[in-house]
Amino acid sequence: MPQLDFANPLMIGQIVWLLIIFGALYYILSTYALPKVATVLEDRAARIAADLNLARAAKAEADTAMVALRDASAKARAESQGAIAAAAAKATAEAQARAEELNAKLSARIAESEAQIGRARDTAMGALREVASETTLGLLQKLTGRADDAAVGRAVDAALAARTGG
């Protein structure tokens, strides 16, 4: 096995050169190559962190804008609802006033009509008494030749009272 041929002078040379090459490789990697990789990785991590912070800030801004929008829309809705309620109340009040006015007018006219009817009735009633008294007096004159004005008047009044009372 050539690996166990330690008498070979190349074997000791191999180890000496291994130590030299390995040491040189370690020196170059640790002083030049690896720090370069480290800075690139750190730069990237820093950049990603910065971008993340930016995105987080933008999200916070968007959130506040969203809240403001929601508040504004809620306020506008409340305002418009108030306006609608006020308008409806005004309209109702107006309608009520008009209805009351109309009612008053109508009841006035009804009262007037009732008074007219009452008057007409009273005149009619007054005329009826007169007609009844004259008719009774005329009949009594023709039948008996005499007529007692007062007695006839009483009788007619009694009869009328009975009619209207009944």
Binding site: G13, Q14, W17, I21, A24, L29, Y32, A33, K36, V37
Partner: peptide
């Protein structure tokens, strides 16, 4: 004369490859 075998040559090549990859 300096006991430099093909084994050491390959070590140099390998070290060069590593440094080349990183730089």
């Amino acid at each position: 004369a300096i006991g430099f075998s093909q084994s050491n040559l390959h070590m140099v090549i390998v070290a060069g490859l590593i440094i080349a990859l990183l730089t």
